[in-house]
Simulated assay, not measured.
Amino acid sequence: MIIEQIVGRLDQLSPEDREGRHIEKVYLPSEDLLKRIQRVTTDHGKEIGIRLTQKEELADGDILYMDEKNMIVIEVEPDDLLVIRPRSMQEMGEIAHKLGNRHLPAQFEGERMIVQYDYLVEEQLTSDGIPFAREKKKVKKAFRHVGHKH
């Protein structure tokens, strides 16, 4: 089976649309969400190819296939993350500047800055006394490295 487009989102289905359908899952690390072409295996051992024709990225909860009885849904594996909780704009600016010099992609949720785990960043945060926690959790979008030339 070759999947060429995302057919929906699990969180947008009504309870009636979900009822009675068997859900197979494709577990993906977050970096694989950026791949438009890949071969994956469901949790039931079914191999499928993904070749997205639209310029879209996969996301947790995307429905790759659905008929009257079955669905195949993307489930993102939790990432090893550093969740940084600066106490002020000053701290946010300082840590953002230091991490920006490393070209480390970051995501923001409210007043929290989230980066993929890196022991050097952990050491930097500890030495600067900036509050953070190491957590395993799903990210809403994949971390995208930005191409950059000095």
Rank of each mutant, 00 (worst) to 15 (best):
I95F: 02
T41G: 05
P86D: 07
K35P: 11
H44Q: 14
K138S: 12
G20Q: 05
G49R: 06
I114N: 03
E123C: 00
H97C: 03
Y117D: 10
S127L: 02
M71S: 05
E47P: 11
V83M: 08
I3C: 02
E94L: 08
H44N: 13
Q124I: 15
F132L: 09
D79P: 03
G93S: 10
V115G: 02
L13Q: 01
M66Q: 15
Q5F: 10
L58M: 03
E135V: 15
I3T: 06
D128A: 06
G93D: 13
E77C: 06
K137P: 07
S30V: 05
T53E: 15
V115C: 00
R21K: 12
E123A: 10
R102F: 09
L34A: 13
D67M: 07
D43C: 00
I72V: 13
R112L: 13
D62K: 01
Y119Q: 14
Y117N: 09
K136F: 12
P105I: 03
G61A: 06
I2P: 10
L125V: 04
I48K: 07
I72T: 06
D32I: 01
L34W: 08
D118K: 05
Q124C: 13
T41Q: 11
M89H: 10
L58K: 02
L28R: 01
K25N: 00
P131R: 09
Q5I: 08
L52K: 04
T53I: 14
E19G: 09
K138E: 14
V76L: 05
I114F: 04
D43Q: 04
Q38L: 10
L82D: 09
P78I: 11
K55V: 07
D32E: 14
R18E: 14
R51T: 15
E47K: 09
K141N: 13
I95H: 02
D62C: 10
I50A: 09
A133Q: 10
N70C: 12
R9K: 15
E24R: 08
K46P: 03
L58Q: 04
R18G: 13
M66S: 13
Q90A: 00
S88A: 05
K149D: 15
E91L: 05
V139N: 07
M92R: 13
R134G: 08
E91H: 01
Y65A: 05
E57F: 04
I74D: 05
